[in-house]
């Protein structure tokens, strides 16, 4: 065998093709779950709406906060499809622009929580001993507070802003992924293919990166899909109590907060943002359910 020293050997691209192949199988099975497909379509519509918000909103400047006091609390009409709010702004425009912070909180929080939590859990589960104890006791500290309370406390301490709200929710969220990843790792560690890797002489961190994390990622992704809905709810809750997105910038949460004062005069003002939160959170939950069912080994690879 010739051994040439030419730096880092070319990385095999095969781990990714494995995932693509798996995604293909998943998609085929998921397609038969109508509720999940419907959820996926709804989520896609909302995400497209958020991305193209400034072009989609009929009154983008009102959406961003410009008052229009002549048309205060107008009911839905052809000019304002969902009516107007307490300052006469077009509610549809506010909602389209408000979907940006709501959706990005969901995706950002869950993404970051997974990014922090999963490797920590894999490390704790793989190495065990004092490393495990240290990491898991830290997660216990975080989990001993109710998540919303912790997020409110951190958010209040850091100062009310959209970014701080995202950080504080992430802080309350990552320990769940650590627990999930640790539990998966502990059972994966006993699999012979991990032992085989050790027999080859692969260092511990490489085993975690190469064998543990790819195998933990699937259940973590299912959890993430279901969590996005809850994270959006929590983001809206923070905005609702005034700790998230600050007025006049719109967010479904802070819109709801203002709207409850005008519920008798303009119920549409409260109903539509509430409905948006409900639909998006539910869609993510149903999609998560669908993905979980697909990954159930019983139903898997039969399609």
């Amino acid at each position: 065998m010739t051994v040439r020293l030419e730096g880092i050997p070319e990385k095999p691209r095969t781990a990714w093709s494995a995932r693509f192949q798996e995604s293909g199988l998943m998609w085929r099975a998921l397609r038969r779950d109508r509720l999940a497909v419907l959820s996926l379509v709804i989520i896609a519509i909302f995400i497209l709406g958020a991305v193209f918000a400034p072009w989609l909103a009929p009154y983008p400047d009102q959406g961003m906060g410009k008052a229009n006091l002549k048309e205060k609390l107008d009911p839905p009409s052809s000019a304002h499809l969902l009516g107007t709010d307490d300052l006469g702004r077009d509610l549809l425009s506010r909602m389209i622009l408000g979907s940006r912070p709501s959706l990005s909180i969901g995706l950002f929080v869950v993404g970051l929580a997974m990014l922090i939590g999963t490797p920590l859990g894999a490390i704790a589960g793989y190495f065990g001993g004092w490393i495990d104890q240290t990491i898991m006791r830290i997660t216990d500290i975080f989990l001993s507070f109710p998540a919303l309370l912790l997020a409110i406390a951190v958010s209040a301490a850091l100062g009310a802003s959209f970014f701080n709200a995202m950080l504080s929710i992430t802080l309350a969220w990552w320990p769940w992924y650590t627990r999930l990843a640790r539990a998966q790792t502990v059972s994966l560690k006993e699999q012979t293919f991990v032992e085989a890797s050790r027999a080859i002489g692969v260092p511990g961190f490489t085993i975690i990166r190469r064998h543990i994390i790819p195998n933990v990622l699937t259940p973590a992704l299912v959890q993430a899909t279901m969590d996005i809905g809850s994270a959006i709810l929590m983001g809206a809750a923070l905005s609702f109590v005034g700790l998230g997105v600050q007025l006049p910038r719109p967010d479904w949460g802070n819109m709801l907060n203002v709207a409850r004062l005008y519920f008798n005069d303009g119920p549409w003002f409260a109903v539509f943002p509430g409905l948006a939160i409900l639909i998006v959170a539910m869609s993510f939950n149903l999609l998560g359910d669908g993905v979980r069912d697909v990954l159930d080994p019983q139903s898997r690879r039969t399609g």
Partner: peptide, 17 residues
């Protein structure tokens, strides 16, 4: 059935050492 990582291709499995 359990000594080979199900997510890896034969190339990666045999190539790992």
């Amino acid at each position: 059935y359990s000594s080979l990582d199900p997510r890896m291709s034969v190339l990666s499995i045999v190539g790992e050492p």
